[in-house]
Each structure stands twice: as C-alpha cells, then as structure tokens.
Design a protein around this nucleic acid. Sequence first.
RNA 1: GCGGCGGUCGUCUAGCCUGGUCUAGGACGCCGGCCUUCCGAGCCGGAGAUCCCGGGUUCAAAUCCCGGCCGCCGCACCA
Length: 590
Amino acid sequence: MSFVSSRYEKIMEIAARRGFLWQSFEIYGGVAGFYDLGPLGVLLKNNIVELWRKYFVKQHQEFVVEIETPIITPAIVFRASGHEEHFTDYATQCTRCGRLYRADHLVEEFLRIEAEGLSGEELEKLIREHDIKCPACGGELGPVKKFLLLFTTYIGPYSPENLAYLRPEAAQGMFVNFKRVYELMRRKLPLGIAQIGRVARNEISPRQGPIRLREFTIMEIEFFYDPQNPRADVLEERCSDYKVRILTADQRTRGEEKPLEISPCEAYREGIVKSPWLAYWMCVANKFVEALGVPWSRIYFEEKLPNELAHYSKQTFDQIVVVERWGKLEVSGHAYRHSYDLERHMKFSGVDMYAVRQLKEPRRVVRKVAKIDKVAIINTFRERAKDVFRVLAKLSSDELLKLVESTPGDTVVVNGIEIPKNVVRVEQVEETIAVEKFVPHVAEPSFGAERLLYIVLEYSYTEENGRKYFRFPPELAPIKVAILPLVDKEPLTTIAWRLFEEAKARGLYAIYDDSGSIGRRYVRVDEIGVPYAITVDFDTVEKGLVTIRDRDSRKQVVVPLKEALDVVEKCLRGANLFELGYPVVEREER
RNA sequence: GCGGCGGUCGUCUAGCCUGGUCUAGGACGCCGGCCUUCCGAGCCGGAGAUCCCGGGUUCAAAUCCCGGCCGCCGCACCA
C-alpha cells in the first residue's frame, strides 16, 4: 500500500513541481474536484487530444466530422435528455450515525414499490408515514435533500424560465444538431459527429485527485447508423485480426474476473456486443489507448450490469486501464444509446429527426386519406366557415382521418365546433413509396482527457537506479528536443542557440540549457520526458558533428550538425534513432 | 456527508507531545559567479516560509483548544 501510494505521490509531486498539473485555487486553500494544467500539462494534453483526433476523426473523415457547441445549455435540453430527472438524487441522512442514503432506494427497499421519479416531498412523506429508519443503526432519518449533479445557472435575468445547466456530457450538442449535420453530410449514414469540450458535473464528494473532477474535457463521438443496414464493413476489415479483452455482464454476475480475449468482430457476431459500431469503436479505443503507452494486457472492457446502466443506454462497456493506485480506472465509456436521445428530442422539440432509407424495391401501397371538401364547408357554415377552416388546419390528414373513423355518429367535434362528417371525404389513394423514415441508432465512445493524461503519466513514469523520468511516446512528449552545449563556452553556446532557433522555426517545442554540468541538464530534461537531446561539443566546432542522445537508453548517435533536426523529426514520426546508419557512442559514467 | 489521520520555503522534511533562545533549522531544487570535453562533481555568494485560514487560551502559540478549508484512509455517494 505504501509503495503504491508513494508511487502515485511521486508522480503527482513531479507533476506539480515541473508544471504538469496541480490543484486549482491553491492560494485560497484549494477546491476539491478541480485541477489546473501547467505549461507542460497543456502541451501533453494537447498531444493526447490530437492523437485522439487522429484515431477517431481524421482516420474516419469521410464519415466522422467534428463540431463545437456551448457548455451552457437551456434546461429544456437536459429535460428532454432525461438528465434533469435521472441526474438528481434525493438523499437522507441518519441523524444518529450520519450514514447517507438514496431516499428512493430506501423507499423501494422498504415498501417494495417503484420510487424512481418521485419528488423529494413525496419521498419524505413516505418515509415519515411508514416510519422508515436507518437500516444500519435504526436511527431517525433526517430531511430528504436534493442533490442535482448538474451545475445550474441562468441565461439572462434570474427567473425560472431562464434556467440553464452546464452540460455534463457533450453528447446533447450532437443530438440537437443531428438534423443539420445529417443534411450537411448529404443525408448519408453512417455518420459520426465528434466533439471535444469541457463538461461539468457537481459531484457530491470527489476524492480521487485528478481522476474524479467536477470540470473536465470530454472527447466523444455520437455515431449514427441505420440499424437495418449498419454498413460496418470496417469492423470486418480492421478488427478481425485484433483482439480485445471483454469482461461481460454475465461473467461478472457469475463472479468471474478473467476477461474474454476476442476480436471485436467476433464479439459482435456472437452477440456479446449488441451494436456493430459499438464493437468497431471499442476496437479503435483499444488501439488508441495502446498508443498512449499502455500495454495491451492492462486494458479491458467491462460490461455494465443492467442496474448500472444509464437511463439512455441499452448496453455499456467501460474501458478499464489497470492502475497502481485504484486498481482499475475507467478511461472511456462505450454506450449503445439506441434511438433514445433523438426520439426524446423529437418529442420535446417537435422537430422531425428522422433519417430516410431507400427501399430496395419501391412499394405500391393503398392508403386512406381524409380530404376537406371546402365547398361543402362554405355551403354548410357560410360566415362561420373561416373558423372551421382554422380549426381543421391544425389537424394533419392522419389525425383527421383517425378522428372521423373513431367517432360514432354523423358529426365530429373539433375545438368545440360540431362538424358534419360529410364535409370530410375519405379517399383511397395509391402511392409509390421509395423511401422510409427511421430513427438512427447511436453508438457512443466517450473519453475523459484528464484521466488519459494521468494514465500517460503513470505508464510513462520510470525509475531506474534512482533515475526518474517519463518515458513518453515521442509523439506525446510535451518538449521534443533539448539542445545543449557540452559546456558553457563559446563558440558552443552560439552554435547551440542557433540550432534552438532553427528548432523553433520548424515548429518544435524545444529547450536550450547551458547551466551547470551536462549531466545535471540531462537529468533535468529526462525528468520531463524530453525524448531527444542534441549536444553541441568540440567535434561540432572541428568536424561539424553533434550527438543525439536517446532518453530511454541514454545512448548517443553522432550525426552532422546540418542533419540533426531532420533526424529528430524522423524519429518523432516513428523512426528508430539507432537504425538510421549513424555511429553509436556509449559513454562510461564518471 | 460521517469517523480517523494529516497540512511548516518550489519540493521533501526537522521542530509540535513537554508553549519561550524558532527574527522557524536542514536537504534537494532555484538564481548569480567560478569551475567543468558527456550523465544529479566541486567552490563562493544569494533569493525563497501568510508555520493552511479564522477565532480562543496565555505575559508568550508553528506548538494547546474551537470552527472552517484542503488532502489521505474507511463508510456513504459517483446517471
């Protein structure tokens, strides 16, 4: 335990001291659940975000597009999404032992009734009426208090109709924009809408350092597809030779802990993953987390049990990375949101969110339609005809038909006006139907960027004989190259400084350092995970040669000064420093 | 939210029990200078602490007491 926590503490100590991250609002005592990113933290996070974008958006740009939507969201959106209802907990606390309970859970347990959706007052009343006591100590329960995990605010003047929430997920930004983006993408499915942005959740008591934050960056895709024709060929093409580890809900129920090793393709075929696109994005997610430096064997997906599912989800897998501190850490969630969100937004907004699919063969159908006989209405109602037209105009043809057919007698009443049925003609029409409407299904991969940041720190952190450094994959390293004169003397310093200027001109983040001994400077740049160090020595002056030092092995290669930055850039793109044909030097330690 | 433990320069810490020589000591780091031809060398000099915050006890508080904030551990919570 002490080893485990001390390793976490060492990482967090370096993280704060060297400028990766630290607790927010330090000078006022700090606030739980908020972390600031420092200069290196921002660079590292940007690189992680960019890698996510590469894996999830750029490599799928023919059908995945990225948008950006507001954090502050009118309450109606989260009323429609179900968050206003389900993100609220009613809690009551024992006045004797202080234990906290979900009021609805207590009521359900004691009275064996469905308590979800009851108001605080109703729950309070039930607890008092049935004299429910603390299950642990039998003490009196305190008043029922409301915990809303959504941060609230107002848009404009403070009044109930201006209530707004800070979004707890980016997803609703994609759902409310589905119609427009679907149109933009020329109504093609599948369609992925991605977003990277800040979200906020008013956690009751966050207490896992940078892991459970009240505000963080989320990276997610709402992936829309036709359930009858998912067009998920890539699942077969890219995922059949690649396995992931999955611990299913069934396994968990049986108490098993060893995940299956299975290709996402097969997992879908066998019904373990219910959506082909969910399986596909799990495949991408696994490869992405490997690219962050996490070994394959430390990643698995854990299926949520039915009672753990969010209100919108038909099936959810958490992507777990094994970490030293907490055992396991959820880095992403993969939810099969089905058609839930679009249907809710259609209902609440009244806006049509259907997609259309072409039928393989157009169908001839005969259907009944109700038509209004305008002449008959004018003849029947004369000067009141205008009112009749007005009320009838509010009904669709289908609604009118239904009304006429379901009402007995010769008249129907619409908005208090009695209308004889004979002004409505019911006709049979024959139509050709070439398309049909449907609500797309949604698979959602969703990542928390700060958790990934922590994962990268933990998996990169290395201790060897007292040496501490971050073994960041070069692509993720905040600073790419250190440029160091061997000693603080001319002309070495001027040559090194010019090289630094050139590195900046190439768009690299670099460090120039001439203070103290060369060994101290290597240690300093190792500690922040700089993958390469170019050292300007006396051979540079005499022969135009510099050395490039590899952070992990501490071996160096000798390369011409003019080629040094090209070599570094090649290595940053994935080349191996020692396989480029340059002589390798290994120096004795003093 | 409850209970236990903790909070001292950038970092790690000594001091707290047994109040006063603490205008808070050390190490590392940092800054300046010297030195230095490859992995935390050495020498000289320097800056750096609201002792978490507020209140109380006392002639006197980093130290004792109370409240708050923050962190860790356990319980609860974590769609």
